[in-house]
Computed example of a mutant assay.
Amino acid sequence: MQPDVTADLNELDATLTTIEKVMDPEAMADRVRELEAQASDPTLWDDPEHAQQVTSKLSHMQAELRKVGELRQRLEDLPVMYQLAEEEDESTDLVDEERRDLRADIEAYEVKTMLSGEYDAREAVINIRSAAGGVDAADWAEMLMRMYTRWAEKAGHKVDIYDISYAEEAGIKSATFVVHGDYTYGTLSVEQGTHRLVRISPFDNQGRRQTSFAEVEVLPVVETTDHIDIPDNEIRVDVYRSSGPGGQSVNTTDSAVRLTHEPTGIVVTCQNEKSQIQNKASAMRVLQAKLLERKRQEERAELDALKGDGSNSWGNQMRSYVLHPYQMVKDLRTNFEVNDPSKVLDGEIDGFLESGIRWRMAEQQKES
């Protein structure tokens, strides 16, 4: 093998070895055996919610263990593939391509080892709100919602939409939805902030360029261990009829629910479930997630005050999407950019997610 190929394989081996130390495949295998024993217990489904958690965790850990093993096997196969190509006096183009693909897969998996925050392994609640920009901003908010749901679809994650508030002319005022799947919160949390769109407005008869903004909030799904207790007397419950685009009624009963947490003024709505009880339960989960995030921000502010750091290192405006006069999507924190906005808006955001997670880890290391 060429010296540069050998050096590259050694570098990949070092990275994968670090990943294996963090993931600990032997401990994962032990945990899989424990979960398999629980899953085979005939009384497991006496508690469906617990059974779902066990089978979901088992499936996830089996997939992770398989993924690490596959990466190691592919790496071990590469020297043999190079040797065979040299012995047969054949081109190494296909082997080089496999090495490049393996590097991309190892680097992408390395990012997963950076998701070690307290809530990173959880599912994600995403809130999108249109901001400055009028009808263009409402349209932009809907475009962002599609971007995230397309990303989830491609990644194999189920999405449950809790609430959509449609704008009068086009687009949405706001939307709340859950992206299911392990580590979706840790992965998508770097998307929080203001997203800016520059384009020729399709709603402007004179074809002028318009800048519009939308806010993205990402929260971890609350679990029973979080102890977010909300006294009933702190919540005002309003019910109303669900509605679709343009105010069209989609429900003949008052099944939609609006919860107002009076001490904080936080308002949550849910109208996409079939019954008022289901909508209230979904809205309560989102309210708990918002209160959990509020608690985390207060604790972070206290730590920053103790450190004498009043700045917000996470920033607010975090990404620009430019469709005119040139084509580019650029992350303002990491400087990662893509010159094909159509692909990004169709859900191909993994590069932004990876660079954002690496940036966040670097920022956290600076603060520690």
Rank of each mutant, 00 (worst) to 15 (best):
M145E: 08
E354H: 12
T260R: 07
T187R: 15
A29V: 03
E76Q: 15
D101A: 11
R296S: 06
Y185D: 01
V286W: 07
E217V: 02
D340N: 12
Y321K: 00
A124H: 02
D89V: 01
H157V: 02
L188T: 00
T184S: 11
Y162W: 15
A37P: 07
A214Y: 07
E191W: 12
K57H: 13
S320E: 15
L44Y: 12
P231V: 01
T43Y: 13
W45P: 04
H180A: 10
T253K: 14
S242I: 05
K330P: 07
A281H: 10
K173R: 14
N272D: 09
V268K: 03
E11H: 11
H60D: 12
N10C: 01
Q276H: 05
S368V: 11
M61I: 15
L219K: 05
N312V: 03
V54L: 13
I230Q: 06
Q248C: 09
V257F: 12
L16K: 01
V179G: 04
A132M: 10
V111L: 08
F203L: 07
D136G: 03
A289S: 10
W314A: 05
S189E: 11
H180R: 14
L332P: 06
P79C: 09
Q276S: 04
L65A: 04
M1D: 00
S342E: 14
R285F: 10
A104G: 00
Q327L: 15
E36D: 11
R208H: 12
S255G: 09
E98W: 04
T253H: 15
A108W: 00
M23S: 06
R333W: 11
Y185E: 07
L353T: 00
A131N: 05
D229T: 04
W45D: 10
M328E: 15
T92V: 10
R296Y: 06
I164Q: 04
A132W: 13
N316C: 08
M284A: 04
M284L: 13
V5C: 05
I126L: 15
A141E: 00
S313R: 12
L287K: 01
V268D: 09
K274A: 11
H157N: 11
G246R: 01
Q364A: 02
